[in-house]
Amino acid sequence: MSTQILIAGFGGQGVLFAGKFLAYKGLTEGKQVSWLPSYGPEMRGGTANCSIILSDDPIGSPIVSNPDVLFAMNLPSLDKYENDVKSGGTIIVDSTLIKRKVERDDVNVFYVPATQMAADISAPALANMIMVGKAIKETNAVSFEGLEEGIKKVVPPKKADMISLNLKAIETGYNM
């Protein structure tokens, strides 16, 4: 089994971080993983995306052109990638920031007011992890078990206090 995930949003929304977490989570589950960022001049405020593949078999191309799962964290990302998602795939929309609905009817769509929810739990920078939580719930990309192990791999030791907040954000998204 192989799951191809595309996370897209503004630079600064934690797009790459969310992807890194999913990749590490997959790694701790014994999966083959790859993580490929868009790269370029956009550091903050521009568009950023990253492709993650989680697979039971060796991964050929790390490039995700037709994702199984799309995280649309802003409107330009939904506009750009909506039609690329595989039929039967999943789109998770940050409905705080994206007011329109997904137009396709052959995909599973979840509207998550992630930015608002993150603010509500006093973790305004963690809308990304709310989305991750929802993705874990609605797809079988990675397991809900052993979250902490995965989080510890991506939160640098200097920011160890962020581990519990990240976990809380994921759980909030998962349990919504």
């Binding site: 083959q32 993983v33 790859s34 993580w35 490929l36 960022p37 790269y39 790390p62």
Partner: peptide
């Protein structure tokens, strides 16, 4: 190439 440089794998 840029992909090889930028991608992460185990």
């Amino acid at each position: 190439d840029g992909t090889m440089g930028q991608m992460m794998e185990p």
